[in-house]
């Protein structure tokens, strides 16, 4: 089918449209050695030169006679290239059968078919609207919807590795397993960390006094000069996290500046440039195993009475 449309095109094009620049300008002596070692390059070149037209055919026909290619396979490949030039029906001096052996994406199917009649009728998938060949390049969810129709109309286009239903059950089983595993692991880790971390801690405060506070991480955003936002994290020290380490991790994770700073009430904080509250919450949970219920984000300012 591919072959046929290719050929149709070749036949129907008027000669000037088909530029022969490649075959005529490329020095054959350079082209041939690349044919010899690698079938890969050979095939693509032969395929490419296949649609060359009458003016090019003389050039093409000259290729196999070059003395620099004694290797039989090279000569074969070259004659395939020459044959491609002839099979438009106007060169005619080289055997046209050669290029079928040289498989390429465009020309690897059936022999030349009947004369084309345009317009071709084009079939589109009723689900996604694309030509059926391209259905499987949709997202998986869309492709799943195309499948029933595709299976009926074009069974060859459905890649089916598992039997019907088997894949789904397997996937479902895997999903359940994974979910359970991660859930239990998370719970265990959280519990372990929580037991060691919860409970009030002694913290020094301004003025030399000490108070007991419940460890928790509080993240809020603030503005600096103009509309520049910073994210300020308090309470990391309560979890025995080194602030400098945390700042460095932030720099790496967010590719932004992060520093250790003292807050107004003399608490150690990490200041991250930009609004990173939620991302930091994820980071601190994943990296330092801080239990999720101890991480807080302060958002939207509340409305207050002007004259209480």
């Amino acid at each position: 089918m591919d072959q046929r449309t290719c050929k149709q095109q070749t036949g129907a094009h008027p000669p000037p449209q088909r530029s022969s620049a490649f075959s005529s300008t490329r020095p054959p002596s350079r082209a041939l050695p690349s044919l010899v070692p690698a079938q890969k390059t050979g095939s693509s070149m032969a395929a490419v030169s296949a649609p060359a037209d009458a003016p090019a055919a003389t050039e093409d026909a000259a290729w196999p006679t070059l003395p620099s290619a004694p290797d039989a396979t090279a000569a074969g490949a070259a004659s395939a290239g020459g044959g491609g030039g002839g099979d438009g029906g106007d060169g005619g001096d080289a055997p046209a059968g050669g290029d079928a052996a040289v498989g390429s994406g465009c020309t690897d199917a059936a022999p030349v078919a009947e004369a084309p009649s345009y317009p071709l009728t084009v079939e589109y998938c009723p689900m996604c609207g694309l030509p059926p060949e391209y259905c499987r390049f949709n997202s998986n969810s869309v492709f799943a919807k195309c499948k029933p129709w595709l299976k009926e109309a074009h069974p060859t286009l459905v890649p089916e590795l598992f039997e019907e239903g088997e894949l789904e059950t397997k996937l479902a089983a895997m999903a359940v397993d994974a979910e359970a595993a991660t859930a239990s692991a998370n719970a265990a880790a959280d519990a372990a960390v929580a037991s060691s971390l919860t409970g009030p801690k002694l913290v020094k405060r301004a003025g030399g006094r000490s108070t007991r506070v419940n460890p928790e991480i509080v993240i809020h955003t603030d503005q600096r000069k103009g509309r520049k936002q910073v994210t300020i994290v308090m309470g990391l020290d309560l979890f025995d996290i080194k602030l400098a380490d945390a700042a460095r991790a932030c720099k790496k994770a967010f590719a932004s500046g992060a520093t250790v700073a003292k807050s107004a009430d003399n608490r150690d904080t990490v200041e991250i440039q930009g609004t990173r509250a939620h991302e930091f919450a994820d980071l601190v949970r994943a990296k330092y195993k801080v239990p999720a219920e101890l991480i807080f984000i302060v958002e939207a300012k509340t409305k207050k009475r002007a004259f209480p």
Binding site: A12, Q17, P119, T121, V122
Partner: peptide, 16 residues
Amino acid sequence: RLLAKYPLLLPRMCVD
């Protein structure tokens, strides 16, 4: 949609 009906209109470039 037109090209699909008349593939002869344009040169053909096949991609990987």
